[in-house]
Nucleic acid binder design. Structure first.
Lengths: 253, 253
DNA sequence: GTCTCTTTGTACGATTATCGCACAAAACGA
DNA sequence: TCGTTTTGTGCGATAATCGTACAAAGAGAC
């Protein structure tokens, strides 16, 4: 019998998949919907949801299930364990104050970037980002920086996981173009995004290195779009980012 | 057979408890430690952890398990489903800018408050708070505001869940004193905290009401401690808080 | 109002995955 | 080196899970 199946607890795996079925678009699920989303039998999903309700992770109004704030507890172990946010926050605050722009640090989780710390200035993005928020890696400066640090095949695998959606008219969705850009980023040491996530938003990012030189996170700065050439903007801000990068080199994820 | 036991999936419940065993103090767990923390048999915990590793929620270095950022996905459904952060963030930003102080919104999860949105100014707290962060309700202004909205017995139950620790010399830990304070807060409509969480930190909070008049969250402002009487500080800032409270009345959790 | 379609709740037997013990191996510390 | 603790693995008994089946309850349609 295979190692992967011998010590697998099916009930646990199913339950977690059910929790993940609750998304931004579908915050309220009926049993039938959850069954459809997860692909599990209705009876199975029902047992999962009732169990989760009994444990306080879900609430049931007789018709729909919703996840309660208690599920956030499951993430605390990770967030609290991570020394990264605590360490980088002062640097983010400084950088944000110096430049007058929003700064963030994120890590890579498969094909998503996850914000772990942030110092916000005036709102330029329409969506509100906070630690725990996710954005796809392919169209963000931090995502591209982290993807560029991976072996090419691995980056390609991650890019293939989900369809590359054009969030704006400027979003690069051609995988070959993206691969070329990743190589350029690796050489150059930083990534630029010009309104590929959202119209009006530009962004610059550099990698943050761990104790063994590996890329553990990315640091970025968000800017309002302007007539100014992207390169001029990069020339102005990248030195500050590289300075923080240098001071934070050696941190552990 | 009881409803509570008939449709309970033991494996799921155990796995979730194992995930919660990873805390800020214990981010890395061996099988034996996790077994001790959860009270489950070592073999059971091992199966849970191997399952979680296989699913990507845990990482195993051959000796210790750690939770990966993937567990944060479990919370996204809740955070994204919650309209609260998106709605309140602009108000928080405004309030923070006007007053020059940090502002936050949190909700109650059992005996903890959970930050769901925050606009930070200069750092006055030593600990860095972010959405998803938790603090005990009994010693925070937002926690007391939300506790004061509950029926007395229910508030008492929540206060009894965990020991009331004196975080500073000023922390109120006597449950009768706390109950009296909750009544005062309910009458007055706001809560004041003077260095009970941390020396040097004062805080004011008001409740936020949902569409049916129920308390769904709390709004606060954090201030550096000073010689000024707490009442004078409250008189200065509470009107601004109440203004935001009024504008946000009717929001859903 | 009735009819149909979908969804939910419940029951139950077969199956299978889970449990916890027990033992071997390995790591650890003295 | 030895003793202790922890980890990995095998296995039989057990109990929990699975999915089907059916009744009941809504939800629409007409």
């Amino acid at each position: 019998m295979d190692v992967k199946t011998r010590d697998m607890m099916g009930g646990l795996a199913k339950g977690l998949k059910v929790i993940e079925a609750f998304s931004a678009e579908r915050p309220r699920l009926s049993i039938a919907e959850a069954s459809q989303l997860t692909g599990y039998d209705r009876a199975t999903v029902r047992r999962c949801l009732l169990t989760l309700s009994e444990l306080g992770y879900c609430a049931y109004d007789g018709k729909f299930f919703t996840v309660t704030p208690r599920v956030l507890r499951l993430g605390t172990g990770c967030l609290a364990a991570m020394p990264l946010p605590k360490i980088v926050q002062p640097w983010l605050d400084d950088l944000s104050e110096q430049t007058g722009q929003s700064t963030s640090v994120s890590i890579l989780d498969e094909s998503d970037i996850v914000y772990v710390a942030r110092a916000a200035q005036r709102r330029v993005m329409s969506i509100s980002l906070m630690p725990g928020s996710r954005l796809p890696a392919y169209c963000t400066s931090m995502g591209r920086v982290m993807l560029s640090a991976l072996p090419v095949e691995q980056a390609e695998d991650l890019l293939s996981l989900k369809p590359l959606v054009a969030r704006t008219a400027k979003t690069v969705t051609d995988i070959e173009t993206l691969k070329g850009e990743l190589l350029r980023i690796r050489d150059r040491g930083y990534a630029c995004i010009d309104q590929e996530v959202e119209i009006g938003l530009r962004s610059l990012a550099v990698p943050l290195f761990g104790p063994r030189g590996q890329v553990v996170a990315a640091l970025n700065i968000g800017l309002a779009a302007s007539e100014e050439p992207m390169q001029a903007v990069a020339d102005r801000y990248i030195p500050s980012l590289l300075k923080v990068q240098k001071e934070l080199t050696g941190i552990s994820g």
